[in-house]
Design a protein around this nucleic acid. Sequence first.
DNA 1: AGAATGTTTAACCATATGGTTCAATATAAC
DNA 2: GTTATATTGAACCATATGGTTAAACATTCT
Lengths: 120, 120
Amino acid sequence: MNHMVKHSAHLDAVFHALSDPTRRAMLGQLAERECTIGELATPFSMSFAGASKHVRVLERAGLLSRKIRGRIHQCRLQAERLAEAQEWMKRYERFWNVKLDALESLLREEDKQKEKKAKE
Amino acid sequence: MNHMVKHSAHLDAVFHALSDPTRRAMLGQLAERECTIGELATPFSMSFAGASKHVRVLERAGLLSRKIRGRIHQCRLQAERLAEAQEWMKRYERFWNVKLDALESLLREEDKQKEKKAKE
DNA sequence: AGAATGTTTAACCATATGGTTCAATATAAC
DNA sequence: GTTATATTGAACCATATGGTTAAACATTCT
C-alpha cells in the first residue's frame, strides 16, 4: 500500500466520467484500438463538438490521452485511474463476496495473506 | 457470465453516486456500521436535508437500503451494485495489469496461480 | 493560394446538481 | 397534549452538465 496516493480528487473525476453511457462506450471503443475524435463521435450520431466535450471529460479524468498528429487527435485509453477506482472499490468487496457474517473474519484473514503473497 | 444483466442503466446511477466525495465517505461510514441519516449528516457539517438528498442518491443507485424504524431511518450498505460496477471495470484490467505486451500471458498465468493460492 | 478535413471554441439552452433555509410530517418522550 | 427529535419536502440559488449550432483554427490536399 506504499504506492497509494491521495485518490479522492481523482476519484471524483473518474467516477463522474464513468457515469455517462456515451463516455463508457467511448472507453469500450478505445479498449479495442486507438481512435480519433471523429471515430469516437460517429457511432453516437453526435456532433463533433459534443464528442470533443466528452473526450475532454475523459482526458481530465486521466482515462484518455491524446497524441496530436497534424489535424488529427489520436486518443488512447489510459487505464491507471481505472485501477485506482477499482482499488477504492476493493474495500467493499467483502460485502458482496461474503454471504455469511460468520465467515467474515476468516475471509479477512485470507485477504491479508493474499496481500502478503502479492508483495513477495 | 450467465448471471450478468443489463448493467448500463445501473452503472449510470452507481458511478454518478460514487462521483461525490461526501457520498463516498458516507459509504465508508456504512461499511463500518448501519447509520441513521443524522449520523451520516453530522461528520460533514451539512444540513439534514442535504444529507437526506445524498442518501436518496445512494438509495436510487441501489448502494444503500433503509429500514424505517419509527422516526429513525436506519441505512445499510448494499454492495451488489458496486460488484456490478467492478465487474464492468474488469474489462479494462489488462490495460493496467500488463505493462509490456510481451509479458501479458506470463502475468496472467501468475494471476491464476495467485487465485489458486488464495483458495487453498 | 484555395478548398476540404479534423477539431476546438464560443454562445446558447434545458435540465441536473449540491447546497441552503424554512415549513411540514411523523414519531417519541414528558 | 405539548414538546422535542428525526427526517422529508418545497422553494430557491449558483454552478455544472450534456447537448446543439455556427464560427474559428489548423492542417492537408490539389
